[in-house]
Design a protein around this nucleic acid. Structure first.
Ligand SMILES: [Mn+2]
Ligand SMILES: [Mn+2]
Ligand SMILES: [Mn+2]
Ligand SMILES: [Mn+2]
Lengths: 138, 138
DNA sequence: TGAATAGTGTAGTTAAGGCTACAATTTGAA
DNA sequence: TTCAAATTGTAGCCTTAACTACACTATTCA
């Protein structure tokens, strides 16, 4: 039983707003995990390049991620992921990858797929994700 | 020629941020067009119910849409769409419909598809949209 | 070893989009 | 017709996420 109830017409928008409120955290820990894997450590400047925003924006967001227990920082030091941060990074990365591969399987060009996947990933429910996965594996 | 250049790793995020900056306008004019079609006029209170936000939030967003030339309002009167607003509504509605039908065609439950489509629609490029359309028509 | 440069921190501003509380207007029913 | 309810407006607050400008720390290399 998937607890259905009735669908209020405002429910989809409530959900979209909730997706957006977790989007930044997902993208940041995902980027940090990748950067650490690639280069050993992740610094503020790496994230400014990754996201194309100023270092001030990165610093503020990272501070909030620390409050949320996803990262640990120390002044002028590289940023580290907590266990919780690594878990979220892994889940986000898997979902991102599935969405990207799904778009490729549909015939979308790699560059376009990379762009679309970055926004779409946060709005894909578990059920839709599993349909994507099934499609990729034909 | 689709002017390729090379893909900076910050491009997808720039694009996602741009999508989010136009999302509200798209959803609002789309909702207004539907409400007007269904009931003749669209009032602030209709939009508060549609989106599940306070009437203050609706009022402020509608004021901005007026600055942008998408709607016309007069104190205590129903909100009207401009020609430009109707054009955007139509485009948004078509794209939304295609995304929704695509998810259904993939086998996603209607309620889940309605929720996911509401967020996904804004991140679907023309190319991806045409792949979605082709898939729906098998 | 010092400077220059790179990286980071901090202060202050802006805009969008959420809210509550209260004031004003419109409308519908008695 | 009048007045109570519904609707809309306005004032003021919050959070997120963007920015510039300037200060401070760390690193590199001449
Ligand atoms: Mn991502
Ligand atoms: Mn993303
Ligand atoms: Mn989004
Ligand atoms: Mn939407």
């Amino acid at each position: 039983m998937t607890t259905s109830k009735k669908l209020d017409r405002s429910d989809p928008h409530r959900r979209t707003r909730r997706d957006h409120s977790t989007e930044t955290a997902e993208d940041y820990v995902e980027a940090m995990a990748e950067i650490i894997e690639r280069s050993g450590t992740c610094r503020v400047v790496d994230l400014t390049k990754h996201f194309g925003v100023s270092h001030v924006t990165v610093t503020r967001i990272v501070a909030r991620l620390q409050d949320e227990g996803l990262v640990v920082t120390e002044k002028y030091r590289p940023i580290e992921l907590t266990t919780q941060g690594r878990r979220l990074a892994q889940r986000s990365r898997q979902r991102h990858e599935i969405v990207y591969e799904f778009l490729l399987a549909l015939g979308v060009d790699p560059k376009v797929a990379a762009i679309d996947a970055e926004g779409i990933e946060h709005h894909v429910s578990p059920q839709t994700l599993s349909k994507f996965k099934a499609f990729v594996q034909r």
